[in-house]
Design a protein around this nucleic acid. Structure first.
Lengths: 220, 220
DNA sequence: AAAAAAATTTAGACTAACCTAAAAAATATT
DNA sequence: AATATTTTTTAGGTTAGTCTAAATTTTTTT
């Protein structure tokens, strides 16, 4: 049988909370992420377990089965491809596309996804720098650094963000930080860990620890 | 409040069955079109009436209110724009897009529709020749003829189809009849009303009454 | 105009996805 | 180790959208 919109969302969220090492996800964490109550989550977990999409033993948290992982990755693939479409083709800002992609990701039809992928030129990353799984479901997380792990004087490339909140993305827009920017930390304030960063070798600007923590970068 | 996927479908179908003159639609007709039972339709009609989207008096059939008409036309606009996208941009055949557009039409976001419309170059017609309502909800049905109303010797332009079934569209593809083809009826068989038609001034082919009845054309 | 047939609505149930309140299990604290 | 706290599950309900079977209204036929 087909998976519902809601089931797909649970699987996607379990995937996200489970991380690359596939750690167990708690009922409460899912209640939080799905904006529902723990009792509702328990109901859904029983259903997903019955369908063979998750490993579930009472009181022990859940992980995805192979089948569940496949569904989750397919949803993620669709989400990220649609985000590319919205930004590249329709001209939306990267801060505007999340909610719309959240709907589009549940539109069924493999043919649609594959044609969309081709139309977009088989992009590898979405507008936030997140990697797009390929048609076979291979999702390789590039091992980016967080800006807080970069020392003074090192030049790094801005590759992605951890926080996708519109307010954060708009803040980056106002600061002139975009994917591909070259960042160089010129100074770190010991007291609050805020930093001075030179962008593309020109203007320098202060960024708070909160911002540094959410910037994914790569050494060159 | 927002309208559900199902509610939008009812409104769209009422619009279609109601025709340009806004005639009452029966419960049974809706049950047929929605593939549900009459009892289920009655329940939904009560709900739509409560929301002010239809005029409904028991046993009397329904028509759309202004508000209901607005919703229906917005759904039709989205459906037809997505069909253009699927055919023009993703390369789907006109026989393959209906079901996918049926899903996409319920994705919310006015911003999305308006940007899609602009991206497509504000198309006036979908791949089946159906007119696309504008952003204000103006939908003007062009007054096409049905091919059965065309006499021998008249040259007409193929402008659209009444039947959207993949099998019918594929039949047209195999016959070499597409939107914009010039059709000239060279002969009508009195016995079964089948016709010989010259296409773009070259090959001539036989078409059955069933086919003629579903071809929308325009005198030039 | 009465009877028969067809269309529609009501009554009572089901499933999916949610809820609250209470019970049970796991974990943390003394 | 016993108690307190937190987490999770169970029990019992709700709403949206569907169903079947029975009742009612409208329409058609005689």
């Amino acid at each position: 049988m087909q998976n519902s919109f809601t089931e797909e969302n649970y699987l996607k969220i379990i995937h996200a909370l489970s991380g690359r090492d596939g750690v167990e996800v708690s009922t409460n964490a899912l209640a939080e992420s799905t904006s529902t109550r723990a009792a509702s989550v328990t109901d859904m977990l029983r259903k997903l377990a019955d369908k063979g999409l998750i490993h579930y033993k009472k009181y022990q948290g859940v992980t995805l089965t192979e089948a569940g992982e496949k569904v989750a990755i397919s949803v993620i693939r669709k989400h990220r491809l649609w985000e590319v479409f919205l930004v590249e083709k329709l001209g939306f800002g990267w801060d505007e596309v999340h909610d719309i992609a959240e709907e589009l990701e549940h539109v069924p039809s493999n043919e649609l996804v594959e044609r969309l992928d081709a139309f977009l030129g088989h992009p590898r990353f979405d507008p936030h720098g997140d990697p797009i799984p390929d048609a076979k479901g291979n999702l390789t997380d590039p091992d980016y650094l967080i800006l807080t792990d970069v020392g003074i004087g090192e030049k790094v490339l801005m590759m992605g963000v951890l926080d996708h909140a519109p307010s954060f993305l708009q803040h980056l827009d106002r600061s002139g930080i975009t994917l591909g920017s070259v960042l160089e930390i010129t100074e770190i304030n010991e007291y609050d860990k805020s930093a001075s960063v030179r962008i593309n070798g020109s203007q320098t600007l202060f960024i708070s620890l909160e911002v540094s923590k959410n910037l994914l970068v790569q050494r060159r």
